[in-house]
Simulated assay, not measured.
Amino acid sequence: MLDTIWDELNGSFTEVPPAIATIRLIAALVLGGIVGFEREVRKKPAGLRTHMLVSMAACLFIIVSQQLSSMSFGTQSELQVDPLRLIEAVTAGVAFLAAGIIFTSGGEVKNTTTGASMWLSGAIGLACGSGQMPLAAIATLLVVIVMVLLRVVERWMGTH
């Protein structure tokens, strides 16, 4: 029983049972929230809620695509499931949102890190949705280390 659940959590089945989908969605919310929390603390325009929603939406798109790929839409030769197209669509949508956050003020570009973190939250959600939660957790940890540690280094060097 536990082996079956573990296999499903790791994306080995095409159909995603509701309990597994729920776990993946929650993982996307939590991991996206961790990235968003750092932006929230820094009082950036896209913070905790935005990052959580971006991550969960990306996760949901993957889960829905897995469900759709298991449905009958004709013969096997007529069925075209291309996960790369889905990833492209999600990243394009997130990039659109992230671009809206970035602006120029007084000749200086602002909020590029927040835009990049939103894009990363989308990738974290895609990883969770495809059952790659350990990979998503590692990416979350690394991005938080980069965002926090580099800020400390910048302050120490007096560049920020």
Rank of each mutant, 00 (worst) to 15 (best):
residue 19 A to D: 15
residue 145 I to D: 00
residue 142 L to R: 01
residue 35 V to C: 07
residue 136 A to T: 06
residue 9 L to Y: 05
residue 87 I to W: 00
residue 9 L to F: 10
residue 126 L to C: 05
residue 82 D to N: 15
residue 25 L to C: 11
residue 2 L to Y: 11
residue 123 A to S: 13
residue 61 F to E: 07
residue 35 V to M: 03
residue 91 T to K: 11
residue 38 E to G: 00
residue 111 N to D: 14
residue 98 A to Q: 01
residue 57 A to Q: 08
residue 147 M to Q: 15
residue 83 P to E: 06
residue 67 Q to P: 07
residue 125 G to T: 05
residue 71 M to P: 06
residue 43 K to C: 11
residue 11 G to C: 11
residue 125 G to R: 01
residue 17 P to A: 13
residue 103 F to H: 12
residue 150 L to W: 11
residue 96 F to W: 05
residue 79 L to D: 10
residue 88 E to H: 14
residue 155 R to H: 12
residue 137 A to M: 02
residue 80 Q to Y: 09
residue 136 A to I: 04
residue 32 G to Q: 04
residue 126 L to V: 15
residue 105 S to H: 15
residue 149 L to D: 06
residue 102 I to F: 02
residue 23 I to C: 10
residue 44 K to I: 02
residue 99 A to K: 03
residue 87 I to Y: 03
residue 113 T to N: 06
residue 144 V to W: 07
residue 93 G to A: 05
residue 4 T to M: 14
residue 106 G to P: 04
residue 149 L to I: 14
residue 119 W to T: 10
residue 68 L to T: 13
residue 12 S to M: 15
residue 30 V to H: 05
residue 148 V to A: 11
residue 125 G to K: 04
residue 47 G to T: 11
residue 57 A to Y: 08
residue 160 H to A: 13
residue 10 N to G: 09
residue 75 T to G: 15
residue 122 G to D: 04
residue 57 A to M: 13
residue 87 I to R: 00
residue 122 G to E: 04
residue 148 V to R: 13
residue 157 M to K: 15
residue 85 R to F: 04
residue 48 L to N: 08
residue 138 I to W: 10
residue 13 F to R: 09
residue 103 F to C: 06
residue 29 L to E: 00
residue 36 G to L: 00
residue 63 I to P: 02
residue 119 W to H: 08
residue 52 M to Y: 04
residue 149 L to F: 14
residue 81 V to S: 13
residue 11 G to L: 01
residue 127 A to H: 07
residue 132 Q to I: 10
residue 57 A to V: 14
residue 105 S to E: 15
residue 73 F to K: 03
residue 64 V to M: 15
residue 100 G to Y: 06
residue 75 T to D: 15
residue 80 Q to C: 03
residue 133 M to V: 13
residue 44 K to D: 00
residue 14 T to P: 12
residue 124 I to R: 02
residue 118 M to Y: 07
residue 2 L to Q: 08
residue 156 W to Q: 11
residue 116 A to M: 09
residue 147 M to F: 12
residue 129 G to K: 03
residue 7 D to A: 14
residue 37 F to S: 15
residue 24 R to P: 05
residue 155 R to M: 09
residue 71 M to L: 11
residue 12 S to C: 09
residue 122 G to I: 04
residue 116 A to Q: 06
residue 41 V to Q: 06
residue 39 R to W: 08
residue 76 Q to Y: 13
residue 9 L to I: 12
residue 108 E to N: 12
residue 159 T to C: 14
residue 113 T to L: 05
residue 3 D to L: 14
residue 61 F to L: 10
residue 115 G to H: 08
residue 150 L to E: 05
residue 93 G to E: 09
residue 45 P to C: 01
residue 99 A to V: 09
residue 157 M to V: 10
